[in-house]
Structure formats: structure tokens, C-alpha cells
Simulated assay, not measured.
Amino acid sequence: MITQKMKYALKALLVLGDEAARGQPEPLTIEEIARRSGTPKRFLEHILLEVRNAGVIASIRGRSGGYVMIRKPSEVSISELLRTIDGPIAPLPCLSRRAYQRCEDCADEAACRIRKVFAELFWSYLVMIDSLTLEDMLRSGVAADQLTGSAQEA
């Protein structure tokens, strides 16, 4: 399950990604991102700082400043973003790629049935989540908008 913080990060990035898709994106203020994404400004400030530190967006100072995408949406991995915002995504510490820890109560990882079952599920999940990018999410929104528009026209 993703956290509310991650949902806010995704909503903000979708706004910035939509802006970037227009060609010459203007920096958006935090107030504008909050308004367009429907996220509380007070949470967004901290979240955007983390995303900026991850090298996905940049902040521009000054009167016409704000936030802009600096990476292409196709280069923004959802799994990396999840790890940046929420931390390790493995269901058990002994399955984590980047934050591996041996389980304290485990005598033999190779024979652990809990690890084996969750490993099979987790690897399937990883194959899917590792292939997902912000661009995929932006495209799914366009497809949803087109379907909604078609349904309303009918």
C-alpha cells in the first residue's frame, strides 16, 4: 500500500508532467501545484523538497519562480519514487534490494517458508512496478480523459 504522502507526490508530479508536456513549461508555484493537484500546501512543501533532492524536479527562485520537471517523465521510475518517498518497498527486510536486513527470528533464510512465499509475490510485483514510469501515468490520464469525453459526447 502506498502512503498518502506518496499519493500527494504523484499528484504533484502529474501536474508538473502535464505542464512539461506543453513544450515550454512555466515554473509553477507551490500554491498552483496544490490547487491543480488537490493536495494540501503544507504537506506539499516537504514532499517537493524530497523530490527535488532526488533530481526529478528543480526549484527556481524569484518572482516568476516555482517548480519544473528536469527529468523526462519516461525517466521517472515509479518504483524509485516510491523508495524515495516511502522507503523500502519489500514486504520483508530480508527481501529488500537496497535495505536488506536479516530477520532477527530467522535461523535459515533458505528454508524460511514465509520468505519463500512473499519472495514469489514480491518479485512479480517488482517486475510490474519497476517498468512503470511517470509517462505511463500521464498517458493513462490522457486515455481516461478521452474516454470520459467520449462518454459525455455520446
Rank of each mutant, 00 (worst) to 15 (best):
Met1Glu: 04
Met1Ile: 04
Met1Gln: 03
Ile2Phe: 10
Thr3Asp: 02
Gln4Asn: 15
Gln4Val: 15
Lys5Trp: 11
Lys7Gln: 15
Lys7Trp: 05
Lys7Tyr: 01
Ala9Arg: 02
Leu10His: 03
Leu10Cys: 06
Leu13Glu: 07
Leu14Pro: 04
Leu16Trp: 00
Leu16Asp: 10
Leu16Arg: 01
Leu16Val: 05
Asp18His: 15
Asp18Glu: 15
Glu19Tyr: 08
Glu19Met: 14
Ala21Met: 09
Ala21Pro: 02
Ala21Ile: 10
Arg22Trp: 04
Arg22Leu: 13
Gly23Glu: 05
Gln24Thr: 15
Gln24Tyr: 01
Pro27Ser: 07
Leu28Ser: 05
Leu28Lys: 11
Thr29Phe: 12
Thr29Asn: 04
Thr29Pro: 01
Thr29Ile: 11
Glu31Val: 15
Glu32Leu: 00
Ile33Glu: 07
Ala34Glu: 05
Ala34Cys: 07
Ala34Tyr: 06
Arg35Cys: 03
Arg36Leu: 09
Ser37Gly: 09
Gly38Arg: 03
Gly38Ala: 04
Thr39Arg: 05
Pro40Met: 08
Pro40Ser: 10
Phe43Ser: 01
Phe43Gln: 07
Leu44Glu: 04
Leu44Thr: 03
Leu44Ala: 03
Glu45Asp: 05
Ile47Pro: 01
Ile47Asn: 10
Leu48Cys: 10
Glu50Met: 08
Glu50Tyr: 02
Val51Ile: 06
Arg52Phe: 08
Asn53Pro: 09
Ala54His: 00
Ala54Trp: 01
Val56Gln: 03
Ala58Asn: 07
Ser59Asn: 02
Ile60Ala: 14
Arg61Ser: 13
Arg63Ala: 13
Ser64Thr: 10
Arg71Gln: 11
Lys72Ala: 15
Lys72Asn: 14
Pro73Thr: 10
Val76Ser: 13
Ser77Lys: 00
Glu80Ile: 12
Thr84Gly: 02
Thr84His: 09
Ile85Met: 12
Pro88Val: 03
Pro88Cys: 06
Pro91Ala: 02
Pro91Asp: 00
Leu92Thr: 00
Pro93Cys: 07
Leu95Ala: 13
Ser96Tyr: 00
Arg98Tyr: 09
Arg98Gln: 01
Arg98Asp: 12
Ala99Tyr: 01
Ala99Ile: 03
Tyr100Gly: 07
Gln101His: 09
Arg102Ile: 00
Arg102Cys: 11
Arg102Leu: 03
Ala107Pro: 05
Ala110Gln: 13
Ala110Gly: 01
Ala110Trp: 08
Ala111His: 13
Cys112Arg: 02
Arg113Trp: 09
Lys116Phe: 08
Val117Tyr: 07
Phe118Thr: 14
Phe118Gly: 00
Phe118Leu: 15
Glu120Phe: 13
Leu121Asn: 14
Trp123Leu: 11
Trp123Val: 11
Trp123Lys: 12
Ser124Lys: 14
Tyr125His: 14
Tyr125Phe: 15
Tyr125Cys: 00
Leu126Gln: 02
Val127Phe: 06
Val127Thr: 13
Ile129Gln: 03
Ile129Tyr: 11
Leu132Pro: 10
Leu138Ser: 12
Ser140Trp: 07
Ala143Glu: 09
Leu147Glu: 14
Ser150Met: 09
Ser150Thr: 13
Glu153Pro: 09
Ala154Asp: 10
